[in-house]
């Protein structure tokens, strides 16, 4: 008995703890807390159920489920093939590629972000954008997807028509070339180690994805500040 206790004491002091009870007890507590929270939520708030589906009676606004409302919000700024298909595809692809593009080995198992500023800032920026777009789409959009503050009355109609302009062919192409050209070369010039550490393929893939992400914001700003509808117009598609 005495020996057994002593052994137990010894193993207690190392950096590994027994799953039973140390981890299992915490899991049990988490499950109990979550269950209580969920039950209280379910007993106080009812899931929405409106009138029966009617293809002839359009809801206005017709909103996607909240987790897709961010993409729907992008429809204000982009054509559906970008907002609804290309952007989500690139997000999924980009997320999957993160571990293969981020070559820094620092920061494993800790919240300290030292030594991974570029990766962390890009991810946090993208994540915040996701949340902000969802919040705007879910809470600040009213009939005809017009912007309404929470205290504004939806029954007061807002003027739907804004005059939007397209950028001319040359200025559009120039802007895109400048954006991606500068975007791909500047990081290399400013931080020489980037390209060295990552190799060409990783560098191009990572910088392109980050540029596309910031490009979404650039387009949003162009639209809000200068009423730009399309940066580039082609017979087949518009950007």
């Amino acid at each position: 008995m005495g020996i057994e206790e002593k052994k137990l004491d010894d193993v207690y002091r190392d950096e590994y703890a027994f799953v039973l009870p140390d981890l299992v007890i915490k899991e049990a507590i988490a499950v109990i807390v979550a269950s209580i929270g969920l039950l209280l939520w379910s007993m106080t708030v009812n899931a929405p159920l409106r009138s029966i589906a009617d293809a002839n009676k359009t809801e206005n606004p017709a909103k996607a489920p909240w987790y897709f409302v961010g993409l729907q919000e992008l429809l204000v700024y982009f054509d559906p093939w970008i907002a609804g298909v290309t952007v989500p595809t690139l997000i999924i692809l980009g997320l999957m590629l993160i571990p293969y593009l981020d070559v820094s080995k620092s920061g494993v198992g800790t919240y300290r972000l030292r030594g991974r500023k570029a990766a962390a800032s890009s991810f946090i920026f993208g994540f915040s954008m996701w949340i902000i777009l969802i919040l705007v789409g879910q809470f600040l959009r009213g009939p005809n997807w017009q912007f309404y503050w929470p205290w504004e009355d939806w029954s007061v109609a807002k003027s739907a028509e804004e005059t939007l302009v397209n950028m001319s062919q040359w200025s559009g192409m120039g802007l895109l070339a400048l954006y991606f050209g500068l975007g791909l070369t500047l990081p290399k010039l400013l931080y020489r180690k980037f390209l060295q550490k990552m190799g060409v393929a990783r560098y191009v893939a990572a910088v392109t994805l980050v540029l596309l992400m910031y490009g979404v914001v650039v387009k949003i700003i162009l639209r809000l500040a200068f009423n730009v509808r399309y940066i580039l117009v082609t017979p087949w598609f518009n950007i």
Partner: peptide, 30 residues
């Protein structure tokens, strides 16, 4: 699945985006 106005129009809006897929959607480029 609840088949109410909320669900019907949310799915209508959501799947409309699928129709915009380049090459593979009827409203998409190419």
């Amino acid at each position: 699945l609840p088949w109410d106005q909320l669900s019907f129009w949310a799915i209508t809006v959501g799947t409309r985006m699928g129709g915009a897929t380049p090459f593979l959607g009827a409203d998409g480029p190419f």
